[in-house]
Design a protein around this nucleic acid. Sequence first.
RNA 1: UCCCCAGUAGCUCAGUUGGCAGAGCAGGUGGCUGUUAACCACCGGGGCCGCGGUUCGAGUCCGUGCUGGGGAGCCA
Length: 431
Amino acid sequence: MGKVTIDTIGKYDNQDVTVCGWLTHKRSSGRIRFLVLRDGTGTIQATCIKGETDNQVLDLYQELTQESSLAVTGTVHRDKRAPGGYEILVSSIEVLQIAETYPIAPKEHGVGFLMDHRHLWLRSSRQHAILRVRHAVINAARNFFDDQGFTLLDAPILTPSSCEGTTTLFEIDYFGDKKAFLSQSGQLYMEAGAMAFGKVYCFGPTFRAEKSKTRRHLTEFWMIEPEIAFADLETVMKLAEGLVVAIIEEVLQTRKEELHQLGRDLTRLEQVRPPFPVVSYDEAVQIVQDAGESMPWGEDFGGAHETIVSNHFDKPVLIHRYPAETKAFYMKNDPDRPEVALCVDMLAPEGYGEIIGGGQREDDPALLGQKIEKAELPAEDFAWYLDVRRYGSVPHAGFGLGIERTVGWICGLEHVRESIPFPRLLDRLYP
RNA sequence: UCCCCAGUAGCUCAGUUGGCAGAGCAGGUGGCUGUUAACCACCGGGGCCGCGGUUCGAGUCCGUGCUGGGGAGCCA
């Protein structure tokens, strides 16, 4: 039998196999020695016994350091005493490299130290579990759209101007005479795409140069943004609910072990079934005020306010029709109540904040032109965006889901920085 | 940008009213007949983030700068 991965080890009971991996730690007692091996699919203990195992192997045990890379060959043996139920009785070890003293010891470390060693921290079981959940979240989201006839239409990352005109952007030099900006949303491009393909989505990184120092912010994060032609606010509210339900189902189905390892309370996630509560901005303000907070109508919710509203429900909550003043220029106003926009945010439970923001877009070219002017955006940069309304404009709507906040919520993380392999934060660009 | 907290060994921290710097983990050595972040014993290792003060004497007090963490605003 040749090379096998640890996740499949149960299929090879009493057979000889080779496992390639890294030494997470070792321990010994009298005549027995254990090597705990990790290969990315799991961990297993490799056992050496004095008098039974080759002396060369026993000598080698002494030299092996944490994270040394090895190919261990031996017989798979079912044993109740072994974590995971199986161990390998070692017959030979091929050392690829004896690792230098590994900085991350099997003990508690501070966040700053771990972030400086993010490239190594990824090897720990906790980070492994989180990033496996992240994969499942992304996979579920893509499948959700693919299965419903959406076309993947990725948006550019280098853009000529602000997409929304609100947040601070990263500016870069573009061949000397021009400036480019890192995209803060693919949405405007998806609107053009929806007029070409009907239903589209993009999935990519977005960038915000805001100097935010909170557990909910990254300067680089990933969004999945669907956009649909001939659609209204109600349509995308249903779509947003369906997406989140599909993500939770997929994670509960394929990543239970990881969630368990993270100590996540699964009952909180199992509650996430449709229908989600839907409240208007007006009702949400009432909830905040009933909780004793002073919040005038017309303002956006602060972090504390969001938590009050989300704690009011045990599922994600959809809040629609915010005051138009607080929202981006491209939002369509409610024809019945022009002071509010046809928009929706979804707040995750347990205080994890806004994971989705979207709504129906302004489809009238004249009104959109006025809004661009009012927002003091450079008209020439938005000429193409107006074109989308000049040639067969239709009602359309969409939203964006923030991957890291979603992963943070599902995993029950303290901070979104653990929900992305290499987080970019204010004052943190390394590694 | 503002507010709060911290900066002592490779790592996590302790350090009394200012009085020759300490523990655990990691590393090294030895022991232990199956361990579960094994355990036990011993060993090496820092002069306390930088600068400037107060003092006979400063990790300990004061000022300032830098770095990190948390939060606000803004947002996904």
